[in-house]
């Protein structure tokens, strides 16, 4: 189990975007449920509690991915590791960074659009 969480485990090659996918499902599903139950009036524009909640959900993911990326990058600079493990660590870090950027980009429309129209 410990090996599984190591920054050099191949799991890191998918973890970053796996988290992003889960978050994506969460905001898409969350939006559907919010609109089914407590749709804010369309006159309120984009500055609604729904947008705020969904937008806020991006922040922990962003921070966590950032930490994972940093961890991978550090592990990759450890020259005692085998080249294969360093490759995985650095590539994994890259995936985490991509996850971070993807999170920000997908959250962008929350600043522009009202939630349930």
């Amino acid at each position: 189990m410990r090996a599984l969480l190591s920054p050099c485990h191949p799991l890191q090659l998918v973890l970053g975007l796996l988290l992003w996918s889960l978050w994506f499902v969460l905001i898409y599903g969350g939006l559907s449920v919010l609109c089914a139950f407590a749709a804010p009036p369309a006159t309120q524009g984009q500055w609604t509690l729904a947008n705020l909640l969904l937008g806020a959900s991006a922040l922990p993911l962003f921070a966590f991915s950032g930490w994972l990326a940093l961890r991978g990058w550090r592990a990759a600079s450890n020259i005692e590791q085998s080249s294969a493990r360093r490759f995985v660590a650095l590539t994994g870090a890259g995936i985490h960074v991509i996850g971070m950027l993807a999170t920000l980009f997908v959250a962008l429309p929350l600043l522009i659009l009202p939630p349930c129209v």
């Binding site: 009036p41 369309a42 006159t43 980009f105 962008l108 429309p109 522009i112 659009l113 009202p114 129209v117």
Partner: peptide
Amino acid sequence: ILALLLLGTPVGQRMLPLP
């Protein structure tokens, strides 16, 4: 894509049946 998203999304918004 950043430019496109920021430019295009408001265009779409104006087409919505908003009150």
